[in-house]
Write a protein that binds this DNA or RNA. Structure first.
Lengths: 385, 385
DNA sequence: TCTCTTTAGTCCATAATCTGTACATAATCC
DNA sequence: GGATTATGTACAGATTATGGACTAAAGAGA
């Protein structure tokens, strides 16, 4: 364990920059006076910090704001979307994606490259991704944006910055480095989709995001932060045991949730979710039954998840989002019935507020979270002023 | 959400006090020079901080220490057990317990008050506890110890400082305040037992502590900190679903782990664990079978827990500790077989290194953790020096 | 035994940063 | 238009850390 370092004058200022930027980020534009009130710092200090933030383009002054009824109006200081931006990336089974998001969490650019990545060669795919990055950043720079960091979402487990295993890609222990020449992070698709939901969807700060894809992942967000477990492998909802002696799962276990509610179990021979939805809408018996069974299994697995993880609410995303009308009943029936009187009310079950690009957006958002938390470091303010 | 406050000079010093004290705590006695090296602060600053810590009795200077081969030896600064102490408390089904632990985590005092607390009157029990506290603190003060905080372990769920529900005590929504006139915390028995294991047992920093009592709780420790979930209700391992349509559980659900591996299921008519152990040792058929079944169920539930929580290892405590020789086989069989190839190796399954007083000790230890993390506040250093 | 070298810890002037009071500015109220 | 109220800046003062000089204490070598 690394000893934590002492605090010096410059880290005090770095921290205060983060506090001020964080307050602006959390509760909209504020005048300097309001920021002083919020942070407990003096107006003088806030002024000085804000002027540093203005200089690097992290915030802008927008028009005058009347605080109370009388007195001089202040000038509102708000996050600036004009200069600082981050890059979100995603490798998925059938596409590569990139997006650029500015500091206000406005999506400035999206790129999708359809491709069959199932059982592919990592080197090849990473080269395509590198090209995509080059294109995207070039375009962002032309729009006057300075990209200060990137994050990558992958459909697999990540440990210490290395992609440990992505079964559907057929990858194992791939070190994804030198993708960009910037601060860089890599994380699981479900974790980043959860963060996408947090920042680009419902904006709730406490929930379990359930990502229905070929595999079933989950990202737990507590107080606006993802819980990752000891090795970064937490949230593998797909392999929670539903039936102890059920059918074998590809993971080596038996009766895992994935066997009952994974994409393959739900779709069967169907080519895509849209076709399943069509059948459900037309009242197809087998489709309805498949959904009911999946929903039941999901309810059982989520009961265990609620007892262990204690999420604020449950958000169904991925392919579960379009299927929500048919899943909601069986799932919440299972949950409500099983949770019993252990807790006040069971967590609410809701559908994800954003679509398939949750993970890329979450990746870009993760970097923004880091900038807000440590502006000095990422914006190069350490020796400015 | 409360805005985080700005950092001022006094908080900088408070932080540095914590950094220095933390370094001494984490890696044994150090000279001032070594502390400067470790923390990145200058020798001057460290000297000044250490002198403050000496003044309040948090640390002591012990003899000379030769650093390299030559040069003046330094004086080692180590945690002092002579003045500062904390109070751990526990309400359990059949006893009240208290302990006093000094800053070096030496146990200085223990008190146990046997009592039948099952379906009891909270007011009455709390009065007994208050008396116990008075006695214990008086004795500690006679030994020259200054008690600076207390924490209480309860066999139930705690939300926002209130005991929400303790089914075996028959308590609901009990506000435990004014127990002591000190900084005070209250937490679940399993969480605190986990912390007890961390500080007084194996000293590993990442594990899931499984507390087998009448109910089955679990406390997840990641990086030396308990994971509590959104409402502080995480870790309810006892109600993880083992058999979706199994027998009804008192919680209202069906097929929960507790039904198969709770104390009542294991002991049956037997009065205590010791009698079960005796039967197991003599090869009693029914006892062995009960253990095998409980172990199997535990293996299933832990498989789900590992996938969701990603613990570093699994520690069996409570009544599972004496039963470990008979549980280990079935549990790890279930775990190893089910976890499959999702992760490198399954987490190690070990027995708790401490006994029934894990929770009280953990409670006292929790306060010590807080002192180490914020010495200025708890030791009254804010305006000293 | 004396001196040199090395390391520990303290002293003091300096630097960085925040605080607090004073003040200029800008709006509303009467 | 003057009083009142609030915003934002300027400047002196307070707090805390830094850095180099200095004292202290040990071993190494002559």
């Amino acid at each position: 364990m690394v000893a934590s370092r002492g605090v010096r004058h410059d880290s005090m200022r770095a921290r205060n920059l983060a506090v001020v930027l964080g307050a602006i980020h959390r509760s909209g534009p504020h005048t300097r006076a309001a920021l002083a009130e919020l942070t407990g710092l003096t107006k003088t200090t806030v002024s000085s910090l804000v002027s540093d933030l203005l200089e690097v383009g992290a915030v802008t002054e927008s028009g005058a704001v009347r605080g109370g009824e009388r007195g001089r109006p202040g000038t509102a200081v708000s996050l600036s979307g004009h200069r600082v931006a981050t890059l979100g990336l995603e490798i998925n089974i059938d596409y590569l994606a990139a997006c650029v998001v500015d500091l206000t969490r406005e999506v400035r650019l999206r790129r999708i490259l359809r491709a069959g990545n199932r059982n592919s060669d990592p080197a090849e795919i990473l080269q395509s991704l590198r090209d995509l990055v080059k294109e995207t950043t070039a375009e962002a720079e032309q729009a006057g944006l300075r990209i200060i960091g990137a994050a990558l979402a992958v459909p697999g487990t990540v440990e210490g910055g290395v992609l440990r295993s992505a079964p559907h890609l057929g990858w194992r222990d791939v070190r994804v480095a030198d993708l960009v020449d910037l601060p860089f992070a890599i994380d699981n698709e479900a974790n980043l989709a959860a963060l996408g939901e947090l920042w680009f969807g419902s904006r709730e700060t406490d929930f379990l995001y359930v990502s229905g894809e070929i595999g079933i992942g989950a990202g737990l967000v507590v107080g606006g932060t993802v819980f990752r477990g000891t090795f970064g492998l937490a949230g593998e909802l797909g392999h929670v045991v539903v039936v102890p002696d059920g059918p074998a799962c590809r993971c080596g276990g038996r009766g895992c949730l994935e066997v009952y509610a994974g994409q393959d179990a739900l779709l069967g021979e169907l080519p895509a979710v849209t076709s399943l939805v069509a059948r459900l809408e037309s009242g197809d018996r087998r489709a309805l039954e498949a959904c009911r069974r999946a929903g039941h299994a999901l309810g059982v697995a989520l009961t265990s998840a609620v007892h262990l993880l204690d999420p604020g609410r449950i958000v169904l995303g991925g392919i579960y989002a379009p299927l929500f009308p048919w899943l909601e009943g069986p799932v919440s029936e299972g949950l409500d019935g099983r949770l019993g009187h252990m807790r006040g009310t069971p967590p609410a079950l809701v559908v994800s507020a954003i679509g398939a690009d949750a993970a890329v957006l979450g990746a870009a958002g993760l970097v923004i979270q880091q900038v807000i938390a440590e502006p000095a470091q990422l914006l190069g303010l350490q020796d400015a002023g």
